[in-house]
């Protein structure tokens, strides 16, 4: 007897339509960027010239390569430090016994999401500046005589990016941690594992999917960070987006800006492709489904 395939749900397409529309728009924009990347830049004009490959050759120059390297380095460091700082917070958020501790942690962790990016960035300028909070504190404590340069450095940019990224990481990790079967941890303790060992051998491996997805998300979005490096880097720390901005809106070199944009996209996707085998291996080891 042949089994009848159930009819496709009638509203399926209707639900899909908005996202198809959005995807279409993005593709069109991307196509436009792609075509710009092959055009000749005419200095002093908003119009572009004919077909050329020169824009692609230009990215081989050391100055642009170093921006690329900085971007990847800052993104990797941001992802790692965000992970290290967020895990304890997420753990406490899920496991705190008292309700008010949990509520407080949720508020502390999530409110940064609701303050504007610019406001938050200016707050960091106040904290990191030569006469800012950190430097005055250290000076008053007699630990330094001249102010440390924190603002306009890769360090300062990374610190701000980590803080910017933590809420999302905390949410992702908290979800993963809350899915860990408490009885598995109890079983490990019952079998003789001290608390740290329980964490290392049971809790951490079982939250690995959250750790991996969180790290990837933060890495990918830091790759495209703009306003934080723009304001805190103050032109001294350039990430790819800042370079794109500079090329596109200062010198109006749209073709080269397009090439840089595509490069950023490629690097982000390429890095994810590179770490993918490692993730696969980890996921096989954890095998949660």
């Amino acid at each position: 007897m042949k089994h009848r395939v159930p009819r496709r749900r009638p509203f399926f397409l209707a639900f899909l339509l908005p996202s198809l529309l959005a995807a279409g728009l993005f593709l069109a924009a991307l196509g436009d960027v792609l075509q710009y990347s092959f055009r000749t830049f005419i200095p002093g004009s908003l119009d572009v010239g004919g077909f050329t490959l020169e824009n692609f050759l230009r990215i081989g120059r050391p100055i642009y390569l170093s921006v690329l390297l900085d971007t990847v380095t800052i993104s990797v460091l941001t992802a790692l430090f965000t992970l290290l700082l967020s895990y304890p917070v997420a753990y406490a958020l899920v496991r705190a016994r008292r309700d008010w501790v949990r509520t407080l942690l949720i508020i502390l962790a999530i409110t940064p999401l609701f303050t504007g990016e610019i406001v938050r960035t200016y707050a960091w300028i106040l904290v990191l500046g030569s006469n800012g909070f950190v430097n005055s504190l250290l000076k008053d404590a007699g630990l330094i005589t001249a102010p440390l340069s924190l603002l306009y450095t890769r360090f300062g940019v990374t610190v701000a990016l980590v803080q910017f990224s933590m809420p999302v990481m905390i949410i992702l990790l908290a979800t993963a941690i809350s899915h860990v079967d408490r009885n598995c941890e109890r079983a490990a303790a019952n079998l003789g594992a001290p608390p740290l060992m329980v964490f290392w051998r049971v809790t951490l491996p079982l939250t690995m999917p959250g750790v991996i997805s969180g790290t990837i998300v933060i890495f990918a979005w830091t790759m495209s960070a703009f306003s934080t490096p723009q304001l805190i880097g103050g032109g001294k720390v350039l990430m790819i987006s800042n370079l794109v901005y500079l090329q596109g809106l200062s010198t109006f070199n749209f073709p080269f800006a397009a090439v840089l944009s595509l490069l950023a996209l490629l690097v982000a996707m390429g890095s994810l492709g590179l770490i993918r085998p490692a993730i696969r291996r980890l996921e096989r080891r954890v095998a949660l489904h």
Binding site: N183, C184, A187, A287
Partner: peptide, 12 residues
């Protein structure tokens, strides 16, 4: 030595 109702085996 505890045997849990849900077994609580280590899935990984």
């Amino acid at each position: 030595g505890m045997v849990f109702q849900s077994y609580a085996l280590f899935p990984h």
